[in-house]
Amino acid sequence: MTFERYWMFAAVCVFVALFLVRMVVAEQLSLQASLSFLVLLVLGATVALFPGVTSWLAYRMGFTLPSNFFFSVLIAALGFLHLSALVHLSRVQQRSVTLTQELALLQEKVDRAMRAIEKTSAAGRS
């Protein structure tokens, strides 16, 4: 049994992966954040170049068509990536709120200290 290789899909995966790497190099995206997406793209390219593996796995797991298996896995993977991004975003938001509050508390302390110093020096001059 021979399988057609999906060069176009593999090329798209590689192109998107290269685009992500470029963003990492330009420090628009952290490597940690992009790593799971890069792994997904590499897997996508592998599946496109070796479709026999997908078919074998699909039939083993009870899927009638390899394409159904492929899309199911892809949807699950993207859902997982989205959920992990939401978790990360929530943590960042929480930290941002805490930092904003701490900054306000510190700023007020600094302002009060500066005013006290100004008062003292003004009293010293007079």
């Binding site: 904003t100 509050q101 306000a104 508390l105 007020e108």
Partner: peptide
């Protein structure tokens, strides 16, 4: 008054909490 200035809008909850934190500390 004392002024606690938040550098971005946090909403009423974030604003109240920073005041309560100041009171506790």
């Amino acid at each position: 008054a004392r002024v606690l200035r938040l550098c971005r809008n946090l909403g009423i909850g974030g604003a109240v909490q920073v005041g309560l934190r100041a009171a506790l500390r």
